[in-house]
């Protein structure tokens, strides 16, 4: 059995797990993995996929939720797929995670300055500007992205595109 984790978060939802996968970078692999989640009825909060330093290998980062038994099954079922090379549940590791979002927010000459101030606080960049909108690029943890979106809501969100999370395990720093 996996290490016992706190199964519910503060909102009473099942705990999120960030699972990092190395898979064969070939046609059908993404389908197999996505198909597994739908066939078994597992949740996907986000899923990202992209190439790695080795062109034959792709990395997927899947954020999912479930109790320990479900998460254990998810990792076992993923391991069972022939195209999956490695499965790491980062929840048990010290890891770095980032998400990028593009946020198109309505702005007028009167609100523009306030929006830019919010952007500065979150270290977001203005990447597009029009008389009626402002598009920001923000990078950070999911909580940070949630927070800036929350702050911008009152101005009127036109469109939001989020990448979903990517994550890597932190390396050992050596003895202090």
């Amino acid at each position: 059995m996996a290490k016992k984790t706190q199964e519910l978060d503060m909102n009473g939802q099942m705990k999120q797990h960030t699972i990092s996968l190395l898979v064969e970078n070939r046609f059908g692999a993404l389908n197999r993995i996505a198909g597994l989640f739908s066939a078994k009825g597992y949740n996907i909060d986000s899923l990202t996929v992209g190439p790695t330093e080795d062109t034959s290998v792709a990395r997927m980062t899947i954020v999912t939720r479930g109790d320990d038994q479900i998460i254990e099954q998810i990792t076992k079922q993923l391991n069972k797929l022939i195209d999956v090379i490695k499965v790491i549940d980062l929840t048990f590791e010290d890891f770095v995670e980032r998400e990028l979002a593009l946020i198109k927010v309505q702005s007028t000459s009167t609100t523009r300055a306030e929006i830019i101030l919010i952007a500065e606080i979150f270290r977001a960049k203005v990447v597009d500007l029009s008389p009626k909108t402002l598009t920001l690029e923000v990078t950070g943890s999911q909580q940070k992205v949630d927070a800036i979106i929350n702050m911008l809501k009152p101005f009127g969100l036109k469109e939001v595109a989020r990448t979903g999370r990517v994550a890597l395990k932190r390396e050992f720093q050596g003895e202090a």
């Binding site: 038994q69 254990e72 099954q73 076992k76 391991n79 069972k80």
Partner: peptide, 11 residues
């Protein structure tokens, strides 16, 4: 032989 068969239905 199948790790996913273990603990799937019964602990």
């Amino acid at each position: 032989i199948d790790p996913s068969a273990i603990g799937k239905n019964v602990a």
